[in-house]
Write a protein that binds this DNA or RNA. Structure first.
Lengths: 358, 358
DNA sequence: CTGAAAGCGCTTACAG
DNA sequence: CTGAAAGCGCTTACAG
């Protein structure tokens, strides 16, 4: 069944040179637009290239000029096939960022080398190392490596982390979580006048989550609202985690606060679901907000009030910063992007107004 | 601001060899697990590698052994920032497939080199050529290149296309569109007894769409139903396209058939929306079905009856087939994956039953 | 088991 | 403007 012709055994720049009757140096030059080749030379080379369907080998090129024009991107793969069910959103989140990275890369002729890591893969460091060897720099999504792991990696290759913290050798790009939460709290406490507020947190080891929780506590205190937090409010960024918090609270006979901020939309989804199961109305009995503005947020019942992060821009910025670092070295270490309050109905509003935020 | 230490000027296998007091050949062997190095030798090499944080250069490696362990993936990027609004689904669709490819790649130690192409990028062939030079093989999403373009490309590097058609030199992997549509028509015509059926088509140049339309016509005819098709029913896979078909039909005073199959979920979304605008109820007045089973399909009102394509598996299969082709050559040219009928409520059913299909 | 050396396919000073 | 040649960092027969 295999094709008879075998234009395999790849042709090289030597084949092109021979056919065009010039040296390989000339072929290389016209292919790269260097120097000022005679029109005659250029034409013969181009024709030979076309006739042969020649494409220069990227590995040889990279080895020779020290630039692969590739950036590695590493992200967490959810276990199993959950993406087919409810968890497909966090997933989308990563992909939107990756698209942003790709957009930036495109502008500079770079491509993305993508590699996911499972929660219980054992050879993670090794895998990322292999990726590093194939790239000019690395972009690491949230929660891929410990701080020391990142530092070690950053010793070998330029590294940009997403939604983490900068290390002496790596750059971090993140969204302004703090402002986002503050806008949410002010809207709930001031615009709606809710006097008791809860926060269902995300994974406890997430920098984003820590920042959000701190901002929640300080802003809620500033607004003079009653605050509900603590171990019982510990979620994990998943819908199941959010639902679980509500169920436990209710089972323990607790009275819920008037409004509950969730660490992310996914959590809010679970919370709203759990509330519905118990016959508690959103937003009449309890107002709910999310964080992220994932695509289904607008389709929920009620439509979810949340904070939109510029995910695409986050990715594009990450690439830009990495690129600058690769070509120039140095640069800023901690980059923060603004977010936007998106007011829908789960907070108790009825319109579809979007409030801009810094 | 730039870090003082510069462990740049990459270390090479020579540095490791010197430190370990062995030859570069030995370093290479222990790193690759070849031969039977003395425990002593291996330990010294490993220690040097660790102390130096050495990672072999992928380009040099690829050049030397002729394997990059990279597959290129090319897909269409929507113009602008529409992914933030309604069109984020088709988008997700591509990403799910890419995740599937990545899963397959992972198993064989390959990484994905990703590159998107915009609708009005001019140097497409060139860009894909560059990608080919960096990879061992290419996977092309739907609608990237003409048949001759694909054939030409397949001359230089192993190529697998998705949802297209095989060429003499390239492999194609697709879902069983035909069975999917037939299951839908039978459900509508036989189970529900609808006697008039319409089909809002996708882009006219899409192989998937052609197959679906043909299957629709033949199965609807077999069921003895009245068929509505033609230019007025031409959509383009987008929600706007679907809405437009309905509006035009209604504006022209046409009577809609009892059930309308849509080329994909995105189209169905637009159709349902347009129907709602005109006060036409789904499924009471007109039953609607989609194709794809995108994540929001279950969240629509009413929940969408559709056909689920194994997108993740499609990607994984594409990689597997490409991999086999890279390492062994040859192999099957046209691969078809089964789909599944997902019955929800937009067809007129009330349950949540899922019917399996071959 | 281990080392010296050739070779992978390019790019880029260096001469001419 | 163009060619001969060195070198990029590995892998892999080939000797020993």
């Amino acid at each position: 069944m295999s094709a008879p012709k075998k234009p395999k055994e790849s042709l090289t720049i030597y084949d092109v040179a021979k056919r065009a009757g010039v040296s390989i140096a000339s072929v290389s030059r016209v292919l790269n637009g260097l120097g000022t080749p005679r029109a005659d030379t250029r034409d013969r080379v181009m024709q030979a290239v076309r006739e042969l369907s020649f494409v220069p080998d990227g590995a040889a090129r990279a080895l020779s000029n020290g630039l692969k024009e590739v950036v590695g991107v590493v992200f967490r793969r959810e276990s199993g096939e959950t993406y087919l069910e409810g968890e497909d959103e966090s997933f989308l989140f990563i992909d939107v960022i990756n698209r942003g990275i790709e957009t930036g890369a495109q502008r500079h002729g770079f491509d993305l080398l993508i590699s996911s890591v499972g929660f219980n893969d054992d050879n993670v460091a090794q895998r990322i190392g292999a990726l590093a060897g194939k790239s000019d720099g690395l972009i690491l999504h949230d929660r891929m490596l410990s701080a020391v792991g990142i530092a070690r990696l950053a010793d070998m290759v330029p590294v940009v982390t997403l939604a983490g913290s900068p290390t002496p050798a790596s750059i971090n790009v993140r969204c302004d979580n703090e402002s986002g939460i503050r806008m949410l709290v002010r809207h709930l406490a001031n615009d709606h006048g809710y006097r008791s507020l809860g926060y269902v947190s995300g994974r406890s080891d997430s920098p984003d989550n820590k920042t959000r929780q701190r901002a929640f506590e300080s802003e809620a205190a500033a607004a003079g609202a009653d605050i509900e937090t603590g171990p019982a409010w510990q979620g994990n960024y998943s819908a199941a985690g959010g639902a679980n918090v509500i169920e436990s609270l209710l089972d323990a006979g607790k009275k819920l606060p008037r409004a509950v901020l969730c660490a992310n939309d996914q959590t809010a989804l679970g919370v709203i679901h759990a509330l519905g199961q118990r016959g508690i109305r959103v937003p009449q009995d309890v107002a709910i907000t999310g964080f992220d503005d994932v695509p289904v947020a607008r389709h929920l019942h009620p439509p979810l009030t949340t904070v939109r992060q510029p995910m695409h821009e986050l990715g594009a910025t990450a690439f830009e910063v990495l690129y600058r670092r690769i070509s120039l070295g140095g640069g800023q270490r901690d980059i923060v992007l603004p977010v936007q309050l998106v007011v829908r109905e789960s907070c108790g509003c009825t319109g579809g107004a979007v409030k801009d935020g810094g």
